[in-house]
């Protein structure tokens, strides 16, 4: 029963991404939305953790939230997929349940 995890906080502000990565099972999906999109960026102190997580998890980032914040796709960690709201909806359908790390 795979889970889609949603993260809406910057990993530099709160620990929701770190906690999610600790408690997500192999094969789960994670979508970074709202301020969570900063967790998808390369070249920062959190990137290595996220890159490592990609071997067990599928990670997605919500494009409209990236664009709003001036985060270009070229700044996103390789292997993280950019989706729109339609893609977000599809992820909630493909997984059995959604765990929002509020």
């Amino acid at each position: 029963m795979p889970t889609l995890h949603t993260i809406n906080k910057s990993p530099f502000d709160r620990n929701s991404l770190q906690t999610c990565l600790r408690l997500a099972n192999k094969g789960a999906a994670v979508i970074l939305i709202e301020d969570g999109v900063y967790g998808a960026m390369k070249g920062n102190t959190v990137s290595a953790t996220v890159e490592k997580a990609l071997s067990d998890l599928s990670i997605y980032v919500l494009g409209p939230d990236m664009k709003a914040r001036g985060v270009d796709e070229s700044k996103i960690i390789d292997g993280i997929k950019v989706v729109d709201y339609k893609g977000f909806v599809d992820l909630t359908v493909e997984n059995d349940k959604i765990n929002a790390w509020l």
């Binding site: 809406n8 709202e34 301020d35 939230d65 729109d84 339609k86 909806v89």
Partner: peptide, 19 residues
């Protein structure tokens, strides 16, 4: 907070997808 805007956009996309 952005939450209600995200919810609005999510609901619109879900309806458009026929859910």
């Amino acid at each position: 907070h952005e939450a209600s805007v995200t919810a609005l956009n999510f609901v619109r996309a879900a309806l458009e997808a026929g859910h």
